[in-house]
């Protein structure tokens, strides 16, 4: 799978060098179920790679939900550093491009 930046995760890791210790990011999820707090976090080379992880996860979540016959794009992922500092937010609708038929736009 090609990630949103066009680089694979492995290429991203390699471009940073394997010896460098990667920072940890925490991905708190806000959606219909309320807040799902990330206690464990994931290592990623930089903020761009962390954003890619968020986007990939949103797509995976939405895909599972669509199989149940529902699509709710109102959620977001808040990415934090281990200091608690919020790095960025990724809205669900930023993770997919949505095209609707003409007539449904008026509903």
């Amino acid at each position: 799978m090609t990630r949103p930046t066009g680089r694979t995760l492995k290429e991203t890791y390699v471009s940073f060098g394997v010896c460098r210790r990667m920072p940890r990011f925490y991905f708190d999820l806000y959606n219909g179920l309320g807040l799902t707090k990330d206690e464990e976090g994931q290592a990623a080379p930089d903020e761009g790679a962390a954003r890619d992880l968020a986007i990939e996860s949103i797509r995976s979540l939405l895909g599972d939900e669509v199989q149940g016959g529902e699509l709710d794009l109102r959620g977001r992922v808040e990415i934090k550093r281990d200091t608690g500092e919020v790095v960025m937010q990724v809205r669900f609708d930023e993770a997919v491009s949505v095209r609707l038929p003409e007539e449904s736009r008026h509903h």
């Binding site: 991905f27 999820l29 959606n31 179920l33 799902t36 990330d38 464990e40 994931q42 992880l53 968020a54 990939e56 996860s57 949103i58 995976s60 979540l61 599972d64 992922v77």
Partner: peptide, 26 residues
């Protein structure tokens, strides 16, 4: 197992797993 490892068993991302675990817990 870490959540990342468990997610790797299940073919989903750790963030998706975290949300799924919350569903199962609730």
């Amino acid at each position: 197992l870490t959540q990342t490892e468990l997610a790797e068993c299940l073919g989903i991302t750790p963030i998706h797993l975290n949300r799924t675990l919350k569903e199962l817990r609730e």
